[in-house]
Design a protein around this nucleic acid. Structure first.
Lengths: 131, 131
DNA sequence: GTAGATGCAAACGCTTTGCCGCTTA
DNA sequence: TAAGCGGCAAAGCGTTTGCATCTAC
């Protein structure tokens, strides 16, 4: 509730505030369309190009990360969530953040000759509402 | 070395043979451009549209799967590889298949209220050649 | 007042599709 | 020889960019 109060770019605008707020308030990564739809409700007009530009700006400033799931548009989430993974519900399609890390592999270990520095895990199944 | 001898679609052509062969011979998932470049070497002319059409056909017939990595074009690999995961080298960018599954989570277990049916893991680091 | 930000529409790049000639069976 | 298939070029679609207007500072 603090970091996104910093000025983004040179000027603070209601559009950028709204976009950052939407991302901070979400409990999972959002697509550009998600962000656009939610932020548009908070500001009067919001062009999709502004969302793309702001997302790109947030990316280059390192405030958000992209999250990719197979055959789906990129999603974005704040960068300071720490180590976590994602769960996509096969019922409603929503993507949630998960705190637990179900990986048995410590960092910087070797696996079959490959030096593993990092990992990405996506789980699929049913969210509490859908099962 | 057997399955792709089955006829794909109604007629067998050198282009489709080449595309299937490239996918079978690879030791990791390939992008459309990868497939195009490698298969073009085997046939005289090969339009990129043919690769897209053949990949889509292979997908709908369930012979290949798509593999997505963040901020990168989709890759494709044969479907009958069994449970496995992927490793991307941060040196050369190549994606490899890994036999071992470093997941500590059994199927159909609950995690924080979510019923986990399946998972996807991507590891990042250095391949044998790059470290 | 001035430079940065927005919105609109045009441009762009990757993927898909239409069309016609070629090739397989 | 008939219909599937491939190549080419046009169309689509999501994302980016140019430009004129607006606005934060």
């Amino acid at each position: 509730m603090e970091d996104h109060d910093d000025k983004l770019g040179q000027r603070r605008t209601s559009q950028r505030d709204a976009i950052q707020q939407v991302i901070v308030d979400s409990d999972g990564p959002l697509t550009v369309d998600d962000i656009h739809a939610r932020a548009a409700a908070a500001v009067g007009t919001l062009g999709i190009a502004t969302v793309y530009r702001t997302v790109k700006l947030l990316m280059t400033e390192g405030r958000i990360h992209s999250v990719s799931l197979p055959d789906q548009p990129l999603r974005y989430e704040q960068a300071d969530l720490g180590h976590h993974h994602h769960f996509q519900c096969r019922g409603c399609g929503q993507v949630y953040d998960l705190e637990e890390c179900p990986m048995a592999l410590p960092k910087n270990r070797e696996l079959a000759g490959f030096l593993v520095e990092d990992h990405d895990v996506t789980l699929y199944g049913r969210c509490p509402q859908c099962h």
